[in-house]
Design a protein around this nucleic acid. Structure first.
Lengths: 114, 114
DNA sequence: TGCATATATAAGCAAATAACTATATACTTA
DNA sequence: TAAGTATATAGTTATTTGCTTATATATGCA
């Protein structure tokens, strides 16, 4: 069979996860660098529980990994994931989201937690 | 600025559409060949209105095009779509769905309408 | 013309989703 | 230890989604 190819049902599950503006932007950001939850909260002007829930969905599928550093938890893309090669070409077609982090740096709020 | 934001939002909309097993399989099939509604109904063992509604969503975004031939309406992927280059690499990672059409041919139900 | 077939649309409902508020947990520092 | 900060989880609710049934539209044919 096509072992190298993605099962279509699994692909649909992953694409549905990516089909949310917040999660998609988060993934694109994490494909570029590590971010902590409080940064996402600022970037998306969203509530902390909302961000946490998005991250959990991504983590449940193994798309991202977390690393605790003190009181902060840093998230980054899991390029060891069996699905990374599936989502990478998608992320590569999206515009860089670095400007969002730059804004935080300019406001000085990025360094506050990182 | 706004431009990039627009793009990622549009990408999320498209990915959400692809994030459904039925629609994703339909798109993969249509990337290989033209299909009519009654074929989809048989393949997915789904109701005709349900299939029609999925197709409409794909058509509303311009991902597929339709061509009437008599009483039948044939759908195929719209490779002129501005989003085709975005979804094509995704479809290419999915396993061929030709077997689904072959089953219909063996049952003789494909020729019934095509 | 009238009937059959193929497809689309509308309305209603149940399940899934995403956000919110409140609370719990984990860690840091005084 | 207590208080403060960062994050996660639980429970609730509003919205969205996908399906169903019923009906409308378009075409073909006798």
């Amino acid at each position: 069979m096509q072992q190298t190819k993605m099962e279509i049902e699994k692909a649909a599950v992953i694409l549905k996860l990516l089909g949310d503006k917040t999660r998609l932007t988060m993934l694109k950001l994490m494909d570029e660098q590590t971010c902590c939850v409080c940064e996402f909260v600022q970037i998306f002007q969203s509530s902390q529980p909302s961000i946490s829930q998005h991250l959990r969905k991504l983590k449940d599928l193994g798309l991202v990994k977390e690393e605790r550093k003190g009181q902060w938890i840093f998230y980054s893309i899991n390029n060891k994931s069996e699905y990374y090669s599936f989502i990478k070409p998608i992320l590569d077609q999206l515009p860089d989201q670095d400007d969002k982090l730059k804004e935080l740096e300019e406001k000085g709020t990025r360094i506050s937690c990182c």
